[in-house]
Write a protein that binds this DNA or RNA. Structure first.
Lengths: 337, 337
DNA sequence: ATAGGTTGTCGAAGCGCTTCGACAGCTTTC
DNA sequence: GAAAGCTGTCGAAGCGCTTCGACAACCTAT
């Protein structure tokens, strides 16, 4: 391995000069800089990460905690992770992948050892056990998701309440009065995942304002579960003409079952999805949907984090505004005749 | 931050003793060990990662290179990544997430800087540009995937040729003579991704032995693309009664289109998937399929890598045997009457 | 009783880098 | 023309750990 000292010798300067060329923290004459850069190239020098971290107490690593569970839409997680990794590199950081498995211990370990300078946490529950630690760890963090108490935290998330409201709004405008919500798996609600509950809140309060009736049912996804869920919904509310689906693995089963029962989409019933655009456009009926801006979330999270690391930013909450795209699955409610 | 020296002082021993307690590289009396461990706990000590890496030239980090593209089944990638992270922790390693974006430069950067001790590379092409570098980098690596030339490399992969053969075998046994293969997106073949080509090879050579005809068509996935692809296939080979699908986003569209055309599964046509079990069991017809053992692949990769890091293993190739599960989508070919 | 092993602990060197203070050689200012 | 200020470079200290050799203290065998 080539060391800084060797580069310095090769370039005929001192080690500190090479270091300053690399970091730009002191001014260096153009000729010296060029000579050093030349030597770096010739020797194929790469600064040693450990030594650098030790001397500067900065590792240039961001830890990303992803959930271990896969009961939520995995491609979204992956897209966020990739966006985080890509954006981090743009700012000179690498990304350490932590699974939720270790729980709070991971936070202690990573911040305690100086392995990472900062942390991005996904899949945050409303009252997450990692929050107290993150608040007092001394290292910056950004949550992707929104807990109940955001004091002392920076959060980035889609505005799920507005998302729910937007779906109801759309259906209300089309004249629908009875709306069913196909939700995530029951487990997601049981552990009080922020996005699921907020979506419901937004949905319900907008429905109240607009005078719609809302029936919410969690659903595991897949054909069998969806069949049972749909049967129950239609049994309880036969007049249901609008569906909001927040569960990617329920989308296609729902469409298939409706078709099978002779209910035409969008003539008889309208369906609005809350899902990535890819799911919406690849479904058997092109789905009217609110997109999940996974890339934006990952990108914003890193940018906020880097800003905090540079001391350019304080804690705050960023909620991305939802956008609804009308496609082929929603239309006017059939008139009561 | 608590340092080793502080722990040593608190426990009334020298720094090196604390270090040896931590690493277990020299014998320590039970009483001393306990005193030190006690101090560690009381002070909440975490060894500094940078200092450790510098002194030992081991970072205890494994780099994982995942593809940036998302034209292949993302949940499989994610499952592998999670398995890698989980297994790595079991062996005391953390995982650094690299996207394919930087390409070969990432290999140079990470190994050159000593950021990672070793590397796992996913989405390997048959003649991948990263291979020469990996061969001579001096640091162990494991590929998830199988390039053309495996000399000097360790690889873990599903035996895709056997997988293809197994699918044909199953259909042949059921009496099917004309088989169509719905493949991944054209781009996947264009860049000579190992798994896609090997599956085809396995399929074709087994088909030759068994006297079946095979028609292969790449497919982007989604309803529209699948509709076009299916029409072409049935136009060219109207007698097709067996389908092999190696593209998760084509599974459901294919089933729906067949249904729509009045071709019953499995009475008229049989469908065999190459996909994760979750996809197979959640489809509208429970799919006979060969599973993709994502978790095993991630786990094996890490275990091989750790073994190499410990000097316990040489380069080799591990091919996991495919397993076909018969479900509701395959049955005897309709007799020619 | 003595040479030869063990076992458990310590001190010191050094890993490769960053960063602080010093300073030589300039230029500017009154 | 002396004081003051820049600019560009250097030397040295030190980040927190691992690891090597040294060496007491003890335990065998002869």
């Amino acid at each position: 391995m080539v060391t800084l000292a060797e580069v310095a010798q090769h370039a005929g300067v001192s080690a500190s000069t090479v270091s300053y060329v690399l970091s730009g923290k002191r001014s260096i004459s153009a000729t010296t800089r060029e000579r050093v850069e030349q030597s770096i190239r010739v020797l194929g020098y790469h600064p040693n990460a450990g030594a650098r971290a030790l001397a500067s107490s900065r590792s240039n690593i961001i830890a990303l905690m992803i959930p271990l569970r896969t009961d939520m839409y995995v491609p979204v997680m992956m897209e966020i992770a990739i966006a985080v990794a890509t954006t981090a590199r743009l700012h000179g950081y690498d990304v350490l992948l932590l699974t939720g498995e270790e729980g709070p211990d991971a936070v202690r370990r990573v911040t305690g050892s100086g392995l990472a300078d900062a942390m991005i946490v996904m899949d945050v529950e409303l009252d997450d056990e990692r929050l107290p630690l993150l608040r007092r760890t001394g290292r910056p963090s950004v949550l992707i998701g929104l807990p109940s108490d955001t004091s002392g935290l920076t959060c980035v998330d889609l505005d799920w309440a507005a998302t729910g409201a937007l779906c109801v709004e759309h259906l209300a405008t089309l004249g629908h009065r009875d709306v069913a919500v196909i939700g995530e798996a029951p487990a997601v609600y049981e552990r009080h995942t922020g996005f699921a509950e907020r979506t419901l809140d937004g949905l319900r309060s907008r429905a109240r304002e607009a005078g719609l009736r809302v029936l919410h049912r969690p659903c595991e996804g897949g054909y069998d579960a969806m069949a049972v869920t749909l049967a129950r919904i239609l049994d309880e509310r036969p007049g249901t003409t609008g569906f909001v689906v927040q569960n990617e693995s329920a989308v296609e089963p729902l469409l298939a079952l409706l078709r099978q029962q002779g209910r035409a989409v969008p003539e008889d019933v309208s369906v609005v999805g809350i899902c990535p655009d890819q799911v919406a456009t690849q479904a058997s009926v092109r789905l009217t949907s609110v997109a999940i801006p996974a890339q934006d979330m990952g990108r914003y999270a890193v940018e906020r984090l880097v800003a905090k690391l540079d001391g350019r930013r304080e804690d705050d909450v960023v909620l991305l505004a939802p956008e609804l795209t009308v496609r082929a699955s929603s239309g006017p409610a059939p008139s009561a005749g």
